[in-house]
Design a protein around this nucleic acid. Structure first.
Lengths: 254, 254
DNA sequence: GGTATTCCTCCTGTATACATTATTTCTGGA
DNA sequence: TCCAGAAATAATGTATACAGGAGGAATACC
């Protein structure tokens, strides 16, 4: 069945459901579907070339993620988010990551886990130092930052907590690195990253000393940097364009 | 359309997917499926009498809820929860409800909303007073308690927060009323309900005075009462049997 | 001209047949 | 007796046909 001239290269291996999910998510995040617009299954079938069954599965998944909302009479529509909802999503992520940080501190991290964290910190330090010089450093920072947050989540050593954090971050603009790129052109960029990275250090220190309350408070405040970045991003169309899922954010036009 | 002799009474009206979901959830919660056991679609089809399509949808939903886990090679298996995971789920719920209570306090509740809360408090007071006398009072308390928690969640005035709380409570033993019934036979029952109800009062007071930090701390501690109830329930098979979803809780046998 | 009603179209819900992949069981050999 | 391999079996993944219902357009009536 694998036709030549494959326009989808390596995607051949994965299931149709996963493919539908990825393509549909991209379509939504790219803003190709206007918020509120109904997503007809057959229209998607034609667009991405798989049958209704996997499309249906993908729609259900994306609705669970929060990108779509179920229409009472059936079907799904693209969801829009106001500035306030984006802030709430960030606050929610901060609260959950704060819980994870506190649990990590209270339950104690193994020395190998702490070593992993310190290694990430060192590499983040290096990335921050290079930010002014090269554009690549931003990409590196984003990757390392994501890995750092993931590691803290893991240290909570709780499946239910981990799962919930994953879900909270399924909204693309709620992820820890969502707004890092937004201010890559801004003169403040370097300053904010220095603040963020110092918080990273403090969080690891708190976990090491098993200071749960401190770890939690720091992690919450850390997430609010993203909120500050959002406010800045909303003032510049160019900055907002660099935020993943920006198309879903509805800007008040008055 | 309700046919006579209906074995499923009102269920006729709802969709097959919803029916499959409800029946399957009941089956799992009743412990008819051993944790770890694979749930073959065809087996379910035979058991609940709908075709594979709605069964598949139901499986996906229950997996999202956390009752099932996806098997890497395909399909789903029933999930089991250790004591620690149940406690984590309760802590998670407390953290999220704490966030909701703080937001409710910070954003301010309308006077009509506060009236609703006070009305619920009064009815809860009454139910607590009658606990010793009648068994019905327990059921009433559970309903009112659920309504109280729902109202706080609503007062956060945030769709994303509300959604996340709903998801955290989709594990049946994580709901605010899960362990109330567990200790209905216990002599301590009345005492714990008095504590819980006093916390309810304090939480409403904090929200009224817009004391966000206090509201949050109280709500978190409030959830820990459920943790204490869990510890008690685990010491008595009879008590545990009254907890929803108890079949999913794996008791350490040593 | 506006409103209500009917009809038509399109969309989702459901069942099922087919394809593909995982798992188990049976057999042969060491 | 245990292990390896192959065949058989059973499960999921996928496509599609059909049924029922929602929503919109057109027409008739007021």
């Amino acid at each position: 069945m694998a036709t030549a001239g494959a326009p989808l290269a390596e995607d051949r291996a994965v299931s149709q459901t996963v493919r539908a999910e990825l393509m549909l998510r991209d379509l939504i995040l790219a803003g190709e579907i206007r918020p509120g617009e109904r997503l007809a299954e057959l229209a998607i079938v034609e667009r991405i070339g798989v049958s209704r069954t996997p499309v249906r599965a993908a729609l259900m998944k994306l609705a669970e993620e929060g990108l779509l909302e179920a229409i009472p009479s059936g079907g799904y529509a693209a969801r829009a988010f106001g500035e306030r909802e984006v802030l709430d999503a960030i606050e929610l992520r901060g609260t959950l990551e704060g819980l994870a940080a506190r649990l990590a501190a209270e339950r104690g991290a193994s020395s190998t886990a702490l070593d992993r964290l310190r290694d990430l910190l060192a590499r983040l330090d290096e990335a921050v130092a290079r930010i002014a010089a090269s554009e690549d450093a931003f990409t590196l920072y984003i990757d390392l930052n994501a890995a750092f947050h993931r590691e803290i989540t893991r240290l909570a050593a709780s499946r239910v907590v981990e799962r919930q954090i994953e879900r909270a971050m399924s909204l693309p603009f709620a992820s820890p690195s969502a707004f890092v790129r937004a201010q890559s052109e801004s003169p403040e960029a370097g300053r904010i990253l220095i603040l963020a990275q110092d918080q990273h250090h403090c969080i690891v220190d708190a976990i090491t000393r098993r200071e749960g309350a401190r770890a939690e408070a720091l992690m919450r405040e850390h997430s609010r940097l993203a909120g500050r970045n959002l406010a800045m991003a909303l003032r510049s169309r160019a900055a907002l364009a660099r935020v993943p899922g920006a198309a879903l954010i509805q800007i008040r036009t008055e």
